[in-house]
């Protein structure tokens, strides 16, 4: 009887030892695991002060017809060709492909990583324009910096077409128009970005004495990435004090931006004929619909040339 009891006691002690060993093994295991995790945690801690800026809120300097917050980086020359095609309301025409075409050919250049400039000429209305664009604030991904990006935009355009109406007096200064924009954008998710653009437009020429010289407008723009290289974009501007002598409508667009290498192609459907800010914001005479001549097919092509090399030591890039 006593022997049997002792045997049970022995077993009990064995079990306790086994449990202790298992317990120790588990603890040693975790200790090693914690050690390995520690190294990456230390690096995580070391790297947390490096600022993280949001890249590419939009892929191009334009959303569709209007400017985005993006500026070109230092030493980049952009060759920009924007075209709008539309048809006249007549039922039968003998034009090839489209009745009317307007093109804006421009050269745009990144003076620094924040400052860009450009000059361009538009065939329709003979508009010549130039702009300066400065990236003021860059959105940061970490919680410390600005949650939005802000870019200042200023352009000047010259209306070179002859004016049929003799009652309108003009000189060089009167043919100039100026647009000032504050572009504010946020990359809400890796795919989705939104922009608002409070704008002030001064126009030298007036069709009637009742028309204001200065306009206040607000623009909205957005992009949604459909794939790695393709995004869907839309833009709309509303003018708070439009011209009185003629009915005008807010320019609107639906578009696809396709980027491949150094080339960016933008396709859009829009009611805005013009491609210069003061003209398309205040002088869009047709509302957006799918009838002629309201519907414009727009096509922008951008080709980029790098004049500045990013890497300092030049001996690289040769086959090993």
């Amino acid at each position: 009887m006593q022997k049997r009891f002792l045997w049970i006691l022995d077993l009990n002690i064995d079990l306790m030892k086994a449990r202790k060993t298992v317990f120790l093994l588990i603890l040693f295991g975790t200790a090693n695991f914690v050690g390995a995790q520690d190294l990456l945690d230390i690096l995580e801690d070391e790297g947390k002060d490096i600022p993280q800026y949001s890249l590419a809120t939009f892929k191009s300097t334009r959303i569709s017809f209007g400017h985005s917050i993006e500026t070109r980086k230092k030493g980049i020359l952009e060759i920009f060709a924007a075209n709008r095609f539309w048809n006249t309301p007549s039922l039968r025409t003998q034009s090839f492909a489209a009745d009317r075409l307007s093109s804006r050919i421009a050269l745009e250049y990144g003076i620094s990583n924040r400052l860009s400039t450009g000059i361009g000429g538009t065939t329709f209305d003979g508009l010549f324009d130039t702009y300066l664009k400065y990236k003021l604030v860059q959105q940061r991904k970490d919680k410390k910096g600005s949650p939005i990006s802000i870019t200042l935009f200023q352009n000047a355009s010259y209306f070179s077409e002859a004016i049929a109406d003799n009652s309108i007096q003009d000189n060089f200064a009167k043919r100039l128009s100026f647009t000032t924009q504050l572009l504010i954008a946020k990359k809400i998710s890796p795919k989705f970005s939104l922009q608002i653009a409070p704008s002030f437009i001064h126009r030298g020429l007036r069709a009637s004495q009742d028309d204001p010289n200065n306009h206040v407008a607000l623009g909205f723009g957005g992009r949604y990435k459909l794939g790695h290289h393709i995004s869907f974009v839309s833009e709309y501007y509303t003018v708070f004090n439009p011209v009185k002598s003629r009915d005008t409508y807010g320019p609107f667009s639906l578009g696809i931006n396709w980027e491949i290498g150094d080339v960016m192609l933008q396709f859009m459907l829009t009611n805005a004929v013009n491609m210069v800010e003061d003209a398309f914001i205040t002088q869009t005479y047709n509302n957006f619909n799918f009838r002629n001549p309201n519907l414009n097919f727009g096509f922008n092509a951008t080709y980029i040339i790098h004049f500045k090399r990013g890497l300092k030591n030049k001996e690289q890039i040769k086959k090993p």
Binding site: L55, K74, E259, I304, L311
Partner: peptide
């Protein structure tokens, strides 16, 4: 080397 490559690489 090219600033645009960085954007493409990341985006």
């Amino acid at each position: 080397e090219k600033a645009l490559m960085r954007e493409h690489f990341n985006e």
